[in-house]
Amino acid sequence: MKKGNGNWFEMSKSDFWSMVLILLLCLLPFALVKSQSAFLGISHFGWIMGLLMFLTPVISLAGIVFEKREN
């Protein structure tokens, strides 16, 4: 039984790094919210938010695949 150490239950490495990566990616666009730069007329903030919709599930799925390999 995996109980983890200290005060928290253990999270698999792949889950942990997937979560960290997703959270960082979620924060990244907000650094560009005031930027005026654009591509095809849409601000970089908009593009990154749009891409985030595809990237976050892919990262999580990759974490699940890695975890399966770990096991």
């Binding site: 889950d15 979560m19 990616l25 666009p29 938010m49 749009g50 985030l52 919709m53 699940i64």
Partner: peptide
């Protein structure tokens, strides 16, 4: 996209947490 990306990104996090 900011509003809907929040909804989408929340599900992978739910899958982990």
């Amino acid at each position: 996209f900011a509003m809907y990306a929040g909804a989408v990104a929340g599900f992978p996090i739910a899958a982990i947490l």
